[in-house]
Design a protein around this nucleic acid. Structure first.
Length: 694
RNA sequence: GCCGCUAUAGCUCAGUGGUAGAGCGCACCCUUGGUAAGGGUGAGGUCAAGGGUUCAAAUCCCUUUAGCGGCUCCA
């Protein structure tokens, strides 16, 4: 008879099998009332689960005791509520839109979705949300129990076939295939089986619909069955649910707040960049303010590159198609590139030969045409720089760096903000080295990442190593070199002192890689930089160096763009700093705020003294009061405000106010401020003006 | 590319078929004020573009372009 071990270590003996709910009741009525599910030996289950054998049991309630001893939300509890709410929403939707076929509805970290196939003549629109939510409210109000029952595979499949949903049949087949021979199919009725709405589902669920305290239908998206774009198009309905209306409201407020902190909003507010329909989708126009940030950041990176023995080069934005045939990028990636630029002569020659528009299109797509391409990557150009002279092993490694602008034809629906664009500038470099040098070169690449992330205070990134599939033949290069390269990637990643994940099968076909991934304000992950080992391109381009044996050898290449693109990186950086850039990066570093016209001359003197040290400074000589000038400078996130009035003029001081500090820091001799700011900028914020007041 | 939503002044947004609005910003005038919005006057619009319905369209319909949230993709 079951002995149930509770989280506090105590053991309860029962004479006969009991349900988790009965155990909860035996502990206390309040616990039983608060319970939404349970964990049996760590696995989340229904509260109605019958316990026939010894086990560890935890009753799941909205909150649990955290490690600190304080109550914290139990993620499994929300998971149960949301998974259950997905059923409630699905039932409601089927009431609103008869004929809607359910596909798959899992909980997510912030809610849930249900993929649904709607009749072609009756898609779901946002305007339907109100009706759906009303139905949901009714179902919740009825407080119907979630009732689980199981059928053996034959019965279950017969039932599903009778219902006629190929999606549910498919789900059932997959579920059976994934589990053992005694598998059963489980169904959940929202109420009484056979009488109320039900769904094929593995569960678990909360005891009844009334436990869903607050919910909202959020948005619509299209999706593909099994994620396959050639398969059926489905409509994905997103929703979320919480225990309490206040939690839902908090969640909605957080979403609004995140939007305000997003780089698109801040970028517009601060005038950092601009998109223009007339220029084209995904093509960024950097305004003066944004350009300043980018330039300062590039200068910083370039300084570090020089120190690490890189040579900076410049190469053109376009190149002949032939180059990309050699590299293998064309026509393989033709669809994600801007179409080739075909010279006039070539076009008229083809026209004279009677080439039709359709034929021309085919020639363009297959690349059987002479022309140029906007470069989709920088490596071929860099390789040609490397190959422009003969190299001795003594020259290696050769490290060629360029802030190289590339163009890619991203799908129109994918483009947005600065994080996904069609023209972008990589902080690119290609290293040509011997196999023996690989280890050290990879570590060098990563140390650069560390230096720059540290300087910017970016700690919230993760590292991912892409390795080859053990049993795949799709990779080029000698397996023993792969082993070495993978070991080198691992060793290099360790030097970062960050946890990293290894993902087999995620390598490029030409070599393993290390990626850096960060999150944006709404929690989406973006890949920033990448460091990739490449055995393929040196082969394709026949690269060589002369070894100590006086014979030609093949170099190994490393592609590395540790910050990915300036566009994406600065987009992420805007959010990282919430628009309040440190002084060295700030478009405007200081604003002088004269109390009145009477101090205009002194304000000019202050401005000139700063300009002489190349500080980006302006003077607010508007006729408003100083309070208004402070408000304006604060809104524009200027790091330092210098209020100057007759008192300052007399003593040759400035009254300093730093961004983010709500009060006047006090007066400081003008010369001291200039020096202190100079130091702050030169040290990139390691020593600050503010610290002088401490 | 797919689904949904959206597009009105430099910005944020109101405007349900009948003369285009507000706040902020901008210009000018008054105010010369010591630490987060002083007051007044004024300029500024082919209502994203194109087509349609209508006596009449910012408003209804279609197409296109662009933005947002997802899906798919991302060398």
């Amino acid at each position: 008879m079951p002995a149930i071990t509770l989280p506090d270590g105590s053991v309860k003996q029962f004479d006969a099998p009991v349900t988790a709910l009965e155990v909860a009741e035996s502990i206390g009525p309040r616990l039983a009332q608060a319970a939404v599910g349970c964990r049996v030996d760590g696995e989340v289950r229904d509260l109605s689960t019958t316990l026939g054998a010894d086990c560890r049991l935890e009753i799941i309630t909205e909150t649990r005791k955290g490690e600190s001893g304080k109550n914290e939300p139990d993620p499994d509890a929300l998971f149960l509520v949301r998974h259950s709410c997905a059923h409630v929403m699905a039932e409601a939707i089927q009431r609103v839109v008869p004929g809607a076929q359910l596909v798959y509805g899992p909980p997510l970290e912030t809610g849930f979705y249900y993929d649904i196939r709607f009749p072609d003549d009756r898609p779901l629109k946002e305007g339907d949300f109100e009706a759906v939510e009303k139905e949901m409210a009714n179902i919740v109000k009825e407080d119907r129990p979630f009732t689980r029952y199981e059928l053996d595979p034959n019965e279950g499949m017969t039932k599903l076939k009778a219902e006629g949903s190929k999606y549910k049949l498919d789900n059932a087949e997959r579920a059976l295939a994934a589990s053992g021979p005694e598998a059963k199919l489980s169904f959940y009725a929202t109420g009484e089986p056979g009488k109320n709405w039900e769904d094929l589902c593995r569960g678990p669920h909360v005891p009844s619909t009334g436990r869903i305290g607050a919910f909202k239908v959020m948005s619509l998206a299209s999706s593909y069955w099994h994620g396959d774009e050639n398969s059926d198009r489905l409509t994905r309905v997103y929703g979320t649910a919480f225990f309490k209306p206040a939690d839902l409201q908090q969640h909605l407020d957080n979403i609004e707040e995140a939007k305000r902190r997003g780089h698109r909003v801040l970028g517009k507010q601060l005038g950092l960049f601009h998109f223009d329909e007339a220029v084209g989708q995904g093509l960024i126009l950097w305004t003066p303010a944004g350009s300043t940030i980018r330039k300062e950041l590039q200068n910083f990176i370039a300084e570090e590159l020089r120190q690490q023995g890189y040579s900076e080069i410049f190469t053109p934005h376009i190149g002949r198609l032939d180059l990309y045939r050699t590299s293998g990028h064309f026509p393989y990636y033709a669809e994600s590139q801007y179409p080739p630029i075909v010279p006039r002569e070539e076009l008229s020659r083809l026209a004279q030969e009677g080439c039709s528009c359709a034929e021309l299109g085919n020639l363009m797509a297959s690349g059987e045409i002479d022309g140029y391409m906007l470069k989709p990557m920088n490596c071929p150009h860099h390789i040609k720089v490397f190959a422009s002279r003969q190299h001795s092993y003594r020259d290696l490694p050769v490290r060629l760096a360029e802030f190289g602008t590339v163009y890619r034809w991203e799908q129109s629906g994918e483009i947005g903000g600065m994080t996904r664009v069609r023209g972008f500038t990589q902080d690119d470099a290609h290293l040509f080295c011997t196999q023996d040098q690989l280890d050290e070169e990879l570590q060098g690449c990563l140390s650069l990442v560390k230096i720059i992330f540290d300087a910017l205070g970016m700690e919230d990134y993760r590292v991912r190593i892409g390795l080859r599939d053990p049993d795949s033949s799709k990779y080029t290069g000698d397996p023993s070199n792969w082993d070495k390269a993978e070991a080198a990637c691992r060793a290099a990643a360790k030097t970062l002192g960050k946890p990293f994940v290894e993902e087999p099968g995620e390598a490029a076909f030409y070599g393993p890689k290390i990626d850096f991934v960060v999150k944006d304000v709404i929690g989406r992950e973006w890949q920033l930089g990448t460091v990739q080992v490449d055995y393929n391109l040196p082969e394709r381009f026949g690269l060589s160096y002369i070894g100590p044996d006086n014979k030609p050898h093949r170099p190994v290449m490393i592609h590395r763009a540790p910050f990915g693109s300036m566009e994406r990186f600065i987009g992420v950086l805007i959010e990282h700093f919430a628009g309040a850039f440190p002084a060295w990066l700030s478009p405007e570093q200081v604003r002088v705020l004269p109390i009145s016209d009477k101090t205009a001359a002194y304000a000019t003197k202050v401005e000139s003294a700063l300009k002489a040290r190349r500080v980006r400074v302006s003077t607010d000589d508007s006729s408003g009061r100083v309070q208004a000038k402070i408000k304006a400078a604060a809104d524009e996130k200027v790091p330092y405000m210098l209020v100057v009035g007759p008192r300052d003029e007399e003593s040759n001081t400035v009254s300093v106010r730093a961004r983010g500090i709500q009060k006047d820091l006090g007066a400081m001799p003008l010369d001291d401020f200039v020096k202190a700011l100079d130091t702050e900028i030169a040290t990139r914020g390691k020593e600050t003006v503010v610290s002088k007041f401490a």
